[in-house]
Structure formats: structure tokens, C-alpha cells
Design a protein around this nucleic acid. Structure first.
Length: 346
DNA sequence: TACCCGTGGGA
DNA sequence: TTCCCAAGGGT
């Protein structure tokens, strides 16, 4: 009944689809080509709450190092964590590896939503997206783009996240049985390039005739969103020790919680009222006169940095001296600490 | 159900 | 500077 919406959107997609490394374009799809489910899955996980621009380089490196799911499944945990460093939301990397191993053991990806949904790191969105894009299943794909487009097309006044069930129901009414993979990607492209959060390009929108929000003059104000609480500021201390041979004292964080499973500098707790921190090593510690600032999803962090030169036979209370230290293998906040400390070791 | 979980770019 | 936010999932 709402087929004309999908037809108009797909007509636009046929002419304006973005070329992306993990995508099979509409012309090739029409010729019968299908994308590699491994690449679709990998890209979807990387793209969770992450921009296309940030994902490109990581996707290229991952697919170069691990061309298929069997190769990724065989990779060491530390190698995958190191390659993911800087991309954020590190639970994704741990789940990625767990998922790859499960898929490799099963002999391949499930080709439908229900089977995909059981895999680690694959939630409602990613299951639907992989089912639609890789296997042309008519799954209802709802991500942030779709929420925005649907909110505007149907003039949904209810604010997010309360409006999610309503949006999903409305999205289902316009999802076609024909070309579901192209349709899902067309919705993403529309949301990313025209139906943007600010200053939507309604003047050149292919579905403006269907847009109730535009007709009411409120498209740019949708979707409404619940106000977010302000971020508190936490403080902490980190210790950067360099051994005479160049090895750096690093510590792998526990799998759970903030920066779970990543490598970093030993230090105290991060809190609005941190307890005094104990150095991981007996040495002469010198404070840097500059602090490191970083903002996480739900708090600001100010780190003070202590540095020391460690003896060749130094035995740390916590952490391990890493001889072939690569700053790129650290999450961004820890790399910022390195950038502040490194000049003092030269 | 809320809350936790990164990062970099743009306004 | 500060805030928003981008192809969400786990608990």
C-alpha cells in the first residue's frame, strides 16, 4: 500500500547510491551479485554508533589482515584488540571475535534474522541489516537513520526513545518485499546525505511527496529527543614507566567495563573524588606539568601523568613491560597520555 | 527499563 | 568551548 514510497526511494538510490567498500551497488545487484556476508557483518559491527569516515581505514586493515571469517576466528585476541584500538566501544571487538569463532564453527553465517540474532554482538538492528543486505531477506531494518527518516515522514511527535515501538511499526509498513537489501541501504544513504539531523535537504528529497513532517513544516525539528543529563568530570592518575631497553610498562584492563580488554597505563581509579594512587613500581616518579583531557560517553576525564625511568631489573607490582610497544595499539585516551609523556623520554 | 560503553568531526 | 551525534548491543 505504501509501495510508492519504496519505489521513489529506490529510484533515487539507483542514481545516487554511495560507493562503499563493503557494498554491492544497485547495478551490480540487479546483475545478480551479492555482497560477502562476512564483509557486510564486519562493516555493520564497525558502523554501530560510528561514522563511515572513521570506519573506512579499520575496515581496510581488518579485511586485509583477515580476509574471511575463518581467518578472523583464528586470530589471537590481543591482535584483534590492537587493530580495533581507537575505534571505540571495545565490547564490539570482543564480541566480534566471539561471533567469528561461532560462525566459523557453524560453517558460515546464518542466512536469516533469527539465527543471526543469537550471535554475540548482533542485536535487532544488525541481524536485520545483515539479513536484508547480505541475503535479501525482507527484514525491517531500523537504525538511527531510519528512526529519523520515519519520524519525519510520519511526523512522529513522541520523543525518542519512547517512540521506538511506533517507529518500528511504521517502518514495517513501508519496507518492500522487493529489493530489501537495496532498500535498507537506500534508507541509510537518505538519512546520511539528505535527511540529515540538521539542515535536511528537503528541496532535493526523493520522498518529499510522502513526508508529513515537511508538509507540516516541522521536518527539521524531528525526531524529538529526550534531554540528556550533563556529564560529570572525573579525575585520575596514570603512571608511564620506560625501562632502559625501551620497554614500556603496560597493563591489560579486565574484559568488563570501560575500555574492557584494552591495553593501557597502570593507574588509580577514575572518580570525581579519586583515592590516592599507588605507583606500579618503585622508582623516582615525576609529574608532568600538563594534564590529559578526554571525554567518554558519559563523563569528562582529567588525567595527571607521572613518569619514571625504570631499572633494567625492575619488577613491577602490576602490569608488564612491553618491548615492542606501538602507540597505535592503545585506545585513544591512553594514546593521548603517551603523546604527552613521550617527549620526556627522548 | 535505564544505564553503561568511545571517538572524532561539525555547528 | 561545548554540545550533539553516527549503520547499537549488553546487562
Amino acid at each position: 500500500m505504501r509501495d510508492s514510497f519504496a519505489i521513489d526511494l529506490l529510484g533515487w538510490y539507483d542514481r545516487h547510491a554511495r560507493a562503499l567498500p563493503w557494498r554491492i551497488g544497485p547495478a551490480d545487484r540487479a546483475a545478480g551479485m551479492r555482497p560477502d556476508p562476512y564483509r557486510v557483518w564486519l562493516s555493520e559491527v564497525m558502523l554501530q554508533q560510528t561514522t563511515v569516515a572513521a570506519v573506512r581505514a579499520y575496515f581496510a586493515r581488518f579485511t586485509s589482515l583477515w580476509p574471511d571469517v575463518q581467518a578472523l576466528a583464528a586470530a589471537p585476541d590481543a591482535a584483534v584488540m590492537a587493530e580495533w584500538a581507537g575505534l571505540g566501544y571495545y565490547a564490539r571487538a570482543r564480541n566480534l571475535l566471539a561471533c567469528a569463532r561461532a560462525v566459523a564453527a557453524q560453517g558460515g553465517f546464518p542466512d536469516a534474522e533469527t539465527g543471526l540474532r543469537r550471535l554475540p554482538g548482533i542485536g535487532p538492528y544488525t541481524a536485520a541489516a545483515v539479513a536484508a543486505i547480505a541475503f535479501d531477506r525482507p527484514a525491517v531494518v531500523v537504525d538511527g537513520n531510519v528512526e529519523r527518516v520515519i519520524s519525519r515522514v510520519f511526523a512522529v511527535h513522541e520523543p525518542l526513545p519512547r517512540s521506538r515501538p511506533q517507529i518500528a511499526a511504521l517502518a514495517a509498513t513501508v519496507t518492500p518485499q522487493d529489493r530489501p537489501g537495496d532498500y535498507a541501504q537506500a534508507m541509510m544513504d537518505l538519512g546520511a546525505t539528505l535527511c540529515t539531523p540538521r539542515n535536511p535537504a528537503c528541496g532535493i528529497c526523493p520522498v518529499i511527496a510522502h513526508c508529513e513532517g515537511r508538509r507540516a513544516g516541522i521536518a527539521a525539528d524531528l525526531p524529538r529527543k529526550q534531554a540528556k543529563p550533563a556529564k560529570p568530570t572525573r579525575r585520575g592518575v596514570v603512571f608511564v614507566a620506560r625501562r632502559t631497553d625501551g620497554a614500556m610498562l603496560l597493563e591489560r584492563r579486565p574484559d568488563r567495563g570501560l575500555l574492557g580488554g584494552t591495553l593501557g597505563w597502570p593507574g588509580g581509579d577514575w572518580s570525581e573524588t579519586p583515592a590516592p594512587a599507588h605507583p606500579p613500581l618503585a622508582a623516582q616518579w615525576t609529574p608532568l606539568n600538563t594534564e590529559v583531557r578526554h571525554t567518554f560517553t558519559h563523563f569528562h576525564l582529567i588525567l595527571s601523568v607521572q613518569i619514571a625511568h625504570a631499572a633494567p631489573d625492575a619488577e613491577p607490582d602490576s602490569g608488564t613491560f612491553v618491548p615492542d610497544f606501538a602507540p597505535r595499539s592503545l585506545p585513544t585516551v591512553m594514546r593521548k597520555v603517551w603523546d604527552a609523556a613521550a617527549p620526556h623520554f627522548t
